[in-house]
Amino acid sequence: MITLASFERKIRRAAVAIGALLAGAFSFAHPAAAAPLPLFPFFMAPPVQSEPAPYMQSPQVDDERPAIEQPARFRRQIVNYPTREATGTIIVDTPNTYLYYVLGNGQAIRYGIGVGRDGFTWSGVQTVTRKAEWPAWTPPAEMIARQPYLPRHMAGGPGNPLGARAMYLGGTIYRIHGTNMPETIGTQVSSGCIRLTNQDVSDLYSRVTVGTKVIVLPMDRRADSASGKRG
């Protein structure tokens, strides 16, 4: 005769046996089940961290593509520069490819520049008559005649040859402007305009006002002549 107690014992033994069988089957099918499950199933790859996109910034000077390494002498710096010219005057030392912004007290900020190629340099005294940020470029008729392949007009932006800023000189076709070819700083390459890196022209632009005096020295004259030294 089966008592209630013996029946309960049989039920408990059967439950233990079934539990053991299920545990064994699960371990056989999933030997690594005790380990934490991977974040991504085997058929999914984790997201790839992509590199930043190449230069696609909006035309902001601070966000432009990294500047090339300039020779030390062409890097913007404060130098001793005694002169009789008033504070705020710009002096372009054409033969040495420097531009000086006079600070006064015998000092100036010196920038490396690119100048006109052979036959296209000029000299004289002008004033800044207009300033423009990311200027558009309309090549003058004289330039079109020499280089008919040039565009008749180009909107401002990082690809524009005038670069980030431009300061227009008197009623001439010449400008002090930036460049999208910083490797040309220190060379004679332009059609007469004075070019600086975009970083440097932006710095100069922030200091210059309309009416600023600009002295451009000829190729055969030393910068010392502008400082009042003679002989």
Rank of each mutant, 00 (worst) to 15 (best):
P47R: 15
T212F: 04
M44I: 13
A25I: 09
D118W: 08
P151Q: 11
A53K: 15
T184W: 12
G119S: 08
P36N: 05
A164W: 01
F120C: 05
P151W: 05
A32R: 15
K229M: 09
P54Y: 09
M1N: 06
D200S: 14
A223H: 11
L217S: 05
Q49M: 09
S227K: 15
L196Q: 12
N105L: 09
K131M: 07
G170A: 06
T187G: 10
I18W: 04
R222F: 00
P82A: 10
L169P: 11
V125K: 15
G171L: 12
R110L: 02
F74S: 05
G19Y: 02
D118C: 06
Q126C: 07
S190C: 10
Y100C: 09
I176V: 14
T212G: 07
R195P: 00
K131G: 03
A25L: 11
A67V: 04
A53F: 06
D200E: 11
P95L: 11
Y55H: 14
T127K: 15
A166Y: 05
A17N: 03
M56P: 02
W134A: 03
G88H: 08
A72S: 13
P66D: 01
Y111C: 09
T94G: 03
A15I: 05
Q199Y: 05
Q199H: 09
A5F: 04
D62G: 12
L169S: 12
V208I: 14
P161H: 10
G211W: 00
G124L: 10
P54K: 15
V201K: 00
W137Q: 13
V210F: 10
A20H: 02
P38F: 01
Q70Y: 07
M219V: 11
Y205G: 11
I113D: 00
M1D: 00
T209G: 06
